[in-house]
Every structure is written in structure tokens, then in C-alpha cells.
Design a protein around this nucleic acid. Structure first.
Lengths: 207, 207, 207, 207
DNA sequence: TTCTAATCGAGACGGTACGTCACGTCTTTGC
DNA sequence: GCAAAGACGTGACGTACCGTCTCGATTAGAA
């Protein structure tokens, strides 16, 4: 699980006094996701999250520095569940599997509304960018790398030094294209479309 | 042309009364971009934009319903400047040209900070999504179609019914991948990377 | 009738050009009273008055310097109608008559809400105070003086130099008491109450 | 005691949380009076009061619903200081004493500018009228009743059932007349004028 | 009759204050 | 020392009116 307590507060040195409630953490992150679903990123407020979680605002600020970091952790719990689909038997089938899994996550309303907002905030906040990368993005990239390894093992494509620039390109192609389809073009990512994309990517990898 | 007056107010039928100042429009959009560069999306306030533009806040709200729509129009003026590069002699060269031009736009600080935020807002606001599509996105789609037509004319790829699903896919791939590289992965879009992407796309189109 | 065009604009020297519409004056003052009835002083806006009168805001400002002066003139038209009641045959009866007439005016909603507001504004605006005095207050004072003259003529009270301090006192007593009853105590000014007040004032005048 | 916290918020039942600052109450009411003196009623703004008091606008709105109620409480603190003068030895002398004390209050600039405005607002707001009555007006009524009791004790006037309609009338006469003299006629309330009023009222009470 | 100049409606304009909201901090009482 | 509660200073929000201005279109009297 991604660390849900703010790493800025050292666990060391706090020995006496009432310990922090672990239940509060779970309640806060769940309340954050619920509020995202109902309100979307820009209407979400920390006061609202606190009262949904049955927690005082102070408790919330004691654990996270702000809205950005809280939402990163709330989404990270969802991405923790990402796993590579079972081997589809071919490069194309594996790509289709990854694309559909990624799209399913992207189409959850809490993710739709929050993920791009976090990346936007990251444009002016390097620490946030790192937090996003380690908690969310890299978890997806792993799928791409693993799928590629399967294809090499099946001898569909030649082996390549990893992690190398080509793996990054493939990741940008798949993730970027799905995001663009789902959030900008706002059209469904179904099996037909995923197959077309997989064909294009596989051709590129082979050719 | 970017739609800088709020389309909700029909231009037809308003004959009397003091006309809106065209200079104010220009000043407001320029001030918006300047504020984006300095402050980024989340710290940008409409009051600040108004005072930068030497304009009253009410003037601003008379023309745009809010921050989202204002920033769409401010960015749209930048995208209006996009043009297809001269014929590069091959499909790959043309793709590289488009990608580099597009990336140059995406790396301007006002775009970096605002574009993802707009897409995030669009997740819960269909009207905004349409506005983004018509003012910004579709302007680039034209480039893809034209580049494809050149390739067909050069007999590099077979002709296809247009605009069809494949053109849309190519567009999502190129635009999405470049945006993801520039704004999510936050790594440079240089000629090497652009060539790799072009190779992948061209192979997909041919294969 | 109280002058309804702003005296600050000299009538001299304006010979050519389109003359001001007299109908507009009437419509504006009537609209002002109607708005006062509906909204009361503090919610009355000049823009609303203008649109009720079917007139542009400019027309309104061309004739009155502001809300205060406009309302003075609007109320003045009501006070123009004030007349002494027929001779009641005794000092008490005449006082009762004046009190009831004054109270009837004070209880009109447009007057209730606006008269005290104007006096409050007058506390910091000497020109307004004069305008109120000449257009409204003096019209009431005349009734008191005339009633007193009748009583002297009937030999109910001794003659006195006029206008003298006693007349002013009587005026303040009657007007002030009625206003206090109607607007502060917010209780009805009926014939019973008026008779009690008249008895007190008459006793004071005689003794 | 003037009710300086909004009575709509019950003091009962609030045990936890940071308590409201009592110093803020005092600072706000003092700042309100200072702003009234400088600016008068109509130019007084709550933002200005807040910054004079060194307090946030929200603190002000947390305690009072608006300008009207705030000013009532600010004036009420002044009227709290009213006390019956020492026994003057006669009904007339006592009336003169009360009238002069009351007039001295009315001639303070903060009261001059605000009291009539409040009464005007009260014309369309029954709750405000009640607040004015209980916080300001009734405090003076006490003086009238007490002065009357003294006169009865001195056997100057016959005893009467109290509080009865006559006491209310006397109160309306004295308070209304002094207010009208001071704020509408805008002429001084000096000993001469007060004596004349006292004579009239005393004659009315005796006759 | 034509000219001319002030009027008219409409509505945009730069301002100012409004009353509300969310922020992130603080100060209480109670565990 | 943590927790809930809620007041606090701050600053932006979006709205409402203010009083002024710029339009094109009348409208009467003067030339």
C-alpha cells in the first residue's frame, strides 16, 4: 500500500501521548474518493472530506500537507490494485488487455476528474510530481514493461536493453492515447478501438 | 479564429448600446497568458487578470462565464498559430515536423500549466469539453489529415475514406503521446524522440 | 408643484435641440413611488426605477443628481395634496384632524420607508436638508400655523408673535409624536389616540 | 446589557470549540461608532468596520446578520449609559433634566447619522424594529416611568394605573418631540426649549 | 427644407461593496 | 499529546449598483 501518512512527519520521536488513529486514515481516504465522485476535483474541499470522514479538519492537516497530496494517496490506493492481465497469447492480446484495464481505471469518476488535475498541479510543484510518479505512474509503466518482456519471451519482438527509451515511448503511446481518447475526445475505449490501437503499436514494435 | 466573445451572447440582434471594446478582449487574453506564465493555473485569479488588463472585473465576467472558458480562449489564440510545416518529403519527416511544432507549443509555460487543468475540468463539464475541442483540439486534427493526404499523394500509404475511425485513432495517438511525453512524463520532445514516434506511427499506417 | 427638473441645470441658454420629455418626468416619479412601495428605500435602485418608467438610466441622471433628490421630489408630489381639514369647531378637533391627516400620509408605504431615510441622509448633506425642508416639512408646518390661527380667531388661546418659537414647538410635538408612534412604537394612530394627544397639546397651549 | 452577540446563536449547548473573542466584540462596536462619526450611515461599510477593528469580515458576519443589527448594538451601548438625573424637585425640572440628557445623546454625530436611518429600515423590517425597541427605545421609557413616579410621590399629579396608555403617550410625546427637534428640524435643544416642552407636558399631565 | 444640437434608448465601462466560501491556523474542552 | 469542535485572519469569489461613457436614432426649432 502506498504510504498514507505524510512522510514529512517523522514517526521517530513521538512516543508519548495519544497515538494516531489508523481508522481515521482509512476513513479519510475513502471519504476523499467519495467526494471526488460526487463533486469532482475542483469542487472538492477538505472541510467536506473531514466531515464525511467524521473527523476534524485538524486531524486531516496533521497528516497531509494539502489537497494535492491527499488526493494522490487516495488515488494510489486504487492503482495498487492494478495487475497484468493473464497472458493473452500474443502481443496484440496483451496490449488490448492492458489498454482495457487502464481505461477501466481512467473511467472511474474519481480518477477521471482528479488525475489530470494532479498532473496540472505538478507542473509547478516538483515534489508533487515525484509523489505522483512513484505512487501512480510507475505502477502503470510496470505493466508495459512486463508485457514487453512476455512478447520477447514469445519471440514476437527482439530483446532490447531495459528500461530503455523505447519502453518509455511505448508507455507514452499507450497511456497518452488512451487518456486522449477517454478525456479529450470523450469517446469510449471498447474492445474494437483497443484492438485497432494494439495493431498499430504491435506493427510499430515489429517493423 | 478563436472565439473570444462568449458564444452564448449572440452577436446578431444587438444594434443599440455602446459596443464592446475589442481592445479589452485582446488585453484580457494577453493578461491571462501572462498571469498563467507567472502564477500557473491554480494561483491565477480573475481579479488579477482584470487588473493586469486594465479592465474591471465585471467586464471580464460580461464576456466569459468563468476561469475555464477564459483560459480556453487565451490558449486558443496560441494554437491558432499552428501551421503544417513545409513538405518534408516523406511521411516520417512530416510527422516529425508536426510533432516538434506541437511540442514547442506544449512546452510554453502558459500551456504546460493550463492544458491539463482544462482537461481535468472538462471531465465534469461537457460544455467545457466541447469548447476545448472546437477551440483547440480540432485545429490540430486538420494537420494530421493534411499530412495523411500528402502521404497518400506520395503513394506511401493507400487512400482511405476520410474522416474515418483510423484518422481519429492516428490523431489520438500523435496528440495523446506528445502531450503525455511533454506534460506527464515531463521529458523533452527532441528530434530523436520524435523520429522514434514517427517510425512507430508510419509502420502502423503502412502495416 | 415642486420643481421636478434639477434646478442645477439652468433653463436659460437651451434653445435648440430636442426638448426634454415632460411625460418622462411624470413616469419617473410615479415609478419611484411604485418601487418604494414594493421594495422600500434601501432596496430601491435607480436602474430599476428607470426600467419601470420605460426610460434609460441616462435620462434619469440628466434630471436628478441622485437617489436622494429623486425621492424627495417623488414624495413632494404626495405632500402637495396636503390641506387643512375643515374647521372642526374647536382646537382639539382641529388638532385631531391634522394628526389623522398627517398619520394617513405617514402610513403610506412609500412614505413610511423613505421619509426617515431622507432625513438620515440629510444629517450629512446640508443641500438635501434644505430641499427636504422646502419641499416637504414646511408644507406640514403650514398646517400647524393655520390651525393655531383658527384657535386664536376663536379666542381659545391668546395671540402670539408668529412665526415664533412656540409654533415651532407645537410643530415638533405633533409631528414628532406621530412619527414616533407610527414608526418606532409601530402602533396605530387612530381617533382615540389622536384625541388623547390633542387633549394634551391643547391643555399645554391653554395652561 | 446590550445584546452584542447575535441572539440567533444560542449560547447554550456550545461547549467545545474555540470560544468567541470578547475583545473582538468590543473592538467591533467601537469601530462601528468611529466609522459612523467619520463617514455617516450611508458611507459606512462592514469591510471598513472590520479593518478598523482589526478583525476579519467573516468574524463580523458570524455575529451580526448585517449592518442594521450591528449599528443597533453599537448605539445601544451608548444608550446603556443613560440614567435619570437627580431629583429636580418638580415635575418640570425632572422633565428638563431628562430631555437635556436625551438630547445630548441624540446630538452625538454617530447617533445623528444613524438613528433615523435605523428607523427607516425598521419600516420594512419588523424584526429590526423589535431589536431597536428592546435595545434602545425601552431603555428610555424607564426614565419616563420613574420620573412620573416621582411626581406622583410629590403629589404633583394623581396616581394612575401603570403602565397604561397615558404613560405610552407621554413617552411618545417626549421622545418623539426631542428627536424631531434634534434630527428633523435640526435645531438646538437648549434649556429654554426644554423648559417650554416641560411646561407643555406638565400642563397636559395636570389638566 | 434642411440643418443642428440636445434628447432618447440601450448597454458597455471602471469602480466599490457586497455577502459567501474555503483555506490553513489557532484555541478551547475532553480523552 | 491527540481528538472534535469551531472561531480566527486571509483572500478570492461572483453579483449588484453606482455613475459615466459611447453608440445610433429621434425630434423639434433655427436657418
Amino acid at each position: 500500500m502506498s504510504q498514507s501518512t505524510d512522510p514529512g512527519v517523522p514517526v521517530e520521536g513521538r512516543r508519548t501521548g495519544r497515538p494516531r488513529s489508523a481508522a481515521a486514515d482509512r476513513a479519510i481516504l475513502a471519504a476523499t474518493r467519495a467526494a471526488l465522485v460526487e463533486l469532482g476535483w475542483s469542487r472538492l474541499t477538505l472541510g467536506d472530506v473531514a466531515s464525511r470522514a467524521g473527523v476534524a479538519k485538524t486531524t486531516l492537516y496533521r497528516r497531509w500537507p494539502g489537497k494535492n497530496e491527499l488526493v494522490v494517496d487516495a488515488l494510489a490506493e486504487l492503482f495498487d490494485g492494478l495487475a497484468l492481465p493473464p497472458d493473452g497469447g500474443s502481443l496484440e492480446a496483451d496490449i488490448v488487455g492492458v489498454v482495457l484495464r487502464f481505461a477501466a481505471l481512467l473511467e472511474r469518476p474519481e480518477v477521471r476528474s482528479a488525475l489530470m488535475a494532479l498532473i496540472a498541479e505538478g507542473a509547478y510543484d516538483a515534489a508533487l510530481r515525484d509523489r505522483i510518479r512513484s505512487a501512480i505512474v510507475n505502477r502503470q509503466k510496470r505493466l508495459v514493461l512486463e508485457g514487453r518482456a512476455r512478447a520477447v519471451h514469445r519471440r514476437e519482438i527482439p530483446p532490447a536493453p531495459e528500461p530503455g527509451p523505447q519502453a518509455d515511448l511505448i508507455f507514452d503511446v499507450i497511456a497518452g492515447t488512451v487518456v486522449h481518447r477517454a478525456l479529450v475526445s470523450a469517446e469510449p475505449v471498447d474492445e474494437t478501438w483497443a484492438s485497432a490501437l494494439a495493431a498499430l503499436v504491435a506493427a510499430g514494435l515489429r517493423g
